[in-house]
Amino acid sequence: MLDDFLTRAVLGAVGVALAAAPLGGFVAWRRMAYFGDATSHAAILGVALALALSVPIFAGTLVVALAMAFLVAHLTDRGMGADLLLGVASHGALAAGLVAVSFVEGARIDLSALLFGDILALGKGDLLVIWGGGLVVAALIFWRWRRLLTATLSADLAFAGGIDPEREKRILMLALALVVAAALKIVGALLIGALLVIPAAAARPFARTPEMMVAGAAVAGVVAALLGLWAAWVFDTPAGPSIVCAAVVLFALSTLTRLRG
C-alpha cells in the first residue's frame, strides 16, 4: 500500500502531466519552447514576491508568469528578434528571481525545491491547485480548440475566418501561466518546460492529427510521471528530474521505433 505522501505525489505528478499535454502540443507547433522556459523561470520571482507580500504562492507565480508571457510577446511583436529576446528574458527572470529570493528573510525558501521541485512534500492544497489549474487549462483549450489550431496554422487564415489570432495567443499564455503555477512544486522552475515539450515530442512520431498528438502526449506524460516516481523511490533520486529523464527515455524509444519501422 502506498504511503499517504506517495499517493499525493502520484496524484500530483499525473495531474500535471495531464494539464501539460494539450498545451505541450501548441508549445511545439508554435515554437514556444523557450517562451515556456522564460515564463517558468519567472515563477521564481513570483514565489519571492508572494512571500514578501504575504499572498498565496500560487497567485504570485500565476501573476508574475502571466506578466512575463505578455511582456515577451509584446516585445516580440514590436519587431525584436524572438530568439535573442527570449535569451534575455529567460536568463534575466531566473537571475532576478534568485536575487529576489535572497531578500526574503529567513529560511522560508528551499532553493532546491524551487528549482527542481519537491514532489514528496505535496500537500492537499497543492493537489487542489494542480487539478483545479489543470481542469481550467483543459477546458480553455477544448473550448478554443479549432480556433487555436487555425491561428497556429496561419494568422491570415484565422483573420479570414473571423478569428483574432492575437486573442488566441493570449489564451495560450494564460494556459501556460496556469500550468507553470501548477507544476512548480512538481518539477521546479527549471524543468517545467521539459514537461511541456518532451511528452509532446515523444507522441509526435505516431501522431497523424493534432488530437492524436495531444492524446499521445498525455499518455507519455502520465507514464513518465509514474516511471519517474518509481525510479525516485527505488534509486533515491530527485523526483522531478527523474520524471523528466523517464520522459526523455520515452521520447528516445518512440523516435527509434519510428526510424526502424
Binding site: R146, I163, M213
Partner: peptide
C-alpha cells in the same frame, strides 16, 4: 502555408478548420 514539421495534420482534418 508553412507547416511546422512538429504539427501532424491530415488534409481532411485541415479542411475542418475552423468550421467542421
Amino acid at each position: 502555408l508553412q507547416i511546422d514539421p512538429s504539427l501532424p495534420m491530415t488534409v481532411g482534418r485541415f479542411l475542418d478548420l475552423p468550421t467542421p
